[in-house]
Design a protein around this nucleic acid. Sequence first.
DNA 1: CTAATTCATTAGGCGCGCCTAAATATGGCG
DNA 2: CGCCATATTTAGGCGCGCCTAATGAATTAG
Lengths: 229, 229
Amino acid sequence: MPPSRQRNANTESVDNYLKAILALSGPEEQRVSSTSLADRLGVAPASVTNMLQKLASSLLPLVEYERHRGVLLSAAGKRRALEVLRHHRLIETFLYEVLDYPLEEVHEEAERLEHFISERFEERIAVKLGHPKFDPHGHCIPAMDGKMPKQISVPLTDLREQGTFVVDSVSDQDALLLRRLRAHGITPGARLQVASRPPDDFVLRTSGVSKALHLSRDLAAAVRIRSAH
Amino acid sequence: MPPSRQRNANTESVDNYLKAILALSGPEEQRVSSTSLADRLGVAPASVTNMLQKLASSLLPLVEYERHRGVLLSAAGKRRALEVLRHHRLIETFLYEVLDYPLEEVHEEAERLEHFISERFEERIAVKLGHPKFDPHGHCIPAMDGKMPKQISVPLTDLREQGTFVVDSVSDQDALLLRRLRAHGITPGARLQVASRPPDDFVLRTSGVSKALHLSRDLAAAVRIRSAH
DNA sequence: CTAATTCATTAGGCGCGCCTAAATATGGCG
DNA sequence: CGCCATATTTAGGCGCGCCTAATGAATTAG
């Protein structure tokens, strides 16, 4: 075995880098900076550089990386990232539907388990759940072939006009926030009348509740909406 | 923080050492040698010594260790080992009962996942399964408080007299072996007539099958039996 | 009771993923 | 255009869990 051989480590850490790049590069697949990765992953920027160099120079590179110019997923990297994302969202759905987890707690557990389940496990829970298309936060579950439909929703904070909307999805990043949203009846599928939106204060009405609802900016930022079909 | 502080790492590797010590020390809790641990874990003996020293000298030691005299679990170590064993066996039961895994495949998956599930996950699957006492191999599942009833079964290979018995449990260590046993109808609970046992050849009759069954030593070694109540 | 054999430990090293501190690009502004 | 602030990379180190080679302890055989 030649000494300079780099094996393609698919470790938990590698998975997390790939997921972060996928999330940060957005739908237009823009290059992602080291700093933003470092922020998101909670590691030092130097650690990011290190890892990116490793990922880029392996036999089957998972990223395309140029010094000082950010990073992008390679085809293989994207495949793996979507596989892990699929694991994550299937597990979330499973915890919610089958094991009766409260919505706020599915993310943390899925975040750990997504790296360790087998293909068989993935397939079995997908069957059990009837091949769901969305997780309980309203996020789309990538198909086995890695295809994902385009997002048509927008962040509530991007909204300019008033009107009636449907909650498309809620962020899974912050359990506390999520619980507060749920307490206000804001869960995927809920109907929402946006009455007005002065800066940093969102006045809403939800179905069945007469009183107006004020949402702070951080709460609103965790909600994506689409037009009431 | 004093520099010599050793944190009590509860990593996957530590868990595996604790499980191995639990298994090898047997019901009489005998001291376990470095070599037997090295064999079981598939690592070099030197690595074992290293780890044992670390485990023994942490703030809350997980093992009692004396140079050249082997190792034993401390109370804390035993607690953790039983917790992981409980995880393992609950997961196996879950995979078998809820996700319809074939019996031979539950072990490998459980072996990975046991280290990463939360207390909540453990509790939820236990509830879902109705707090089972045995896993699908026939092994007893430790209770939450770490209590385990004594084994009353004996290895088929230890048997001296003929007679009718019930299969208590089958080993989960070797998937191939397990599949061959299942093909012969030897699963926990099955009735077994032991007709004769010349060295290294076990002649059996199973319920419903008229033809005699010959088991090689390696197969027989994977079966534990008890008297047909 | 000594010698040989077997078992266990020490010593030193490696890859991984992280860190800090120091050096170096890049891009915007005066 | 050159300078500065910020972003990024390089250099050097650390703990973990593993390795091999060499040393040392325990046990068994003669």
